[in-house]
């Protein structure tokens, strides 16, 4: 454990808290992609099946349970809550997210640490997480008005993987750890946010409302 890793996980947790606060206090999920949220549920279920096979950890296990519970809660709100579901921008959430699943599954089938059920699912979850933000970014680009909570949510979600990159660099030098699969996927995942980061920071510096061109 190092400071980058701790900060990364807390940032990830904070992003989820921001989204839940937005949904619960404003009773609105406007600007949030249900497709991205669906993909996160799939990511966490396929990655954290190891809850059943791995010894409990005081640090990892609570995080895993929280990520599973909150991602399912968010999807539940967006699909079934009678007020929240009416605020969902269904017509703008156009990304064909099912087309992300198959390539990630094929990639996981061929590129994995070990060809076992748990390891292939773990690899699938890493690849899928890397691209799961795409429907959300597409939805934001079609939004003329991005509210602060939504902007902060996406920023924190991107910052989390960027901090993992620092953690991996640290671990490479300090612990001699090499993990090509999450590293390359994490690099792709962070790169997808580059454009968003640019406009987020620009709007923050100019004290303007966030808008993607």
């Amino acid at each position: 454990m190092n400071a980058f890793r701790l900060l990364a996980d807390l940032t990830h947790l904070l992003s989820i808290i921001i989204l839940l606060v937005k949904i619960r206090t404003t009773k609105s999920c406007a600007g949030i992609s249900l497709k991205t949220q669906d993909l996160y549920v799939l990511v966490f279920i396929s990655r954290y099946l190891d809850l059943f096979t791995r010894p409990l950890s005081l640090y990892n296990t609570p995080f895993k349970l929280v990520f599973l519970a909150t991602s399912i809660t968010i999807v539940y709100y967006m699909r079934y809550h009678k007020v929240v579901k009416q605020t969902y921008n269904k017509d703008s959430d156009t990304f064909k997210h099912y087309f992300l699943i198959l390539p990630c599954a094929v990639l996981a089938f061929f590129i994995n640490p070990k060809f076992t059920f748990i390891e292939v699912l773990w690899s699938f979850s890493i690849y899928l997480e890397a691209v799961a933000i795409l429907p959300q970014l597409v939805l934001l680009q079609s939004s003329s008005n991005i509210d602060n909570l939504t902007g902060n949510y996406v920023f924190m979600l991107g910052a989390y993987r960027a901090l993992y990159l620092l953690n991996w660099i640290y671990r490479f030098f300090a612990e001699d750890v090499v993990r090509w699969i999450p590293w390359i996927a994490g690099l792709v995942q962070t790169a997808l946010y580059a454009d968003f980061f640019y406009y987020y920071i620009k709007s923050w510096r100019n004290n303007e409302r966030l808008k993607l061109p």
């Binding site: 990892n60 390891e119 993992y164 953690n167 750890v177 090499v178 999450p182």
Partner: peptide, 10 residues
């Protein structure tokens, strides 16, 4: 490698 199977990250 065995090292890669540890998955000690979230």
């Amino acid at each position: 490698s065995a090292e890669a199977l540890k998955h000690d990250e979230l």
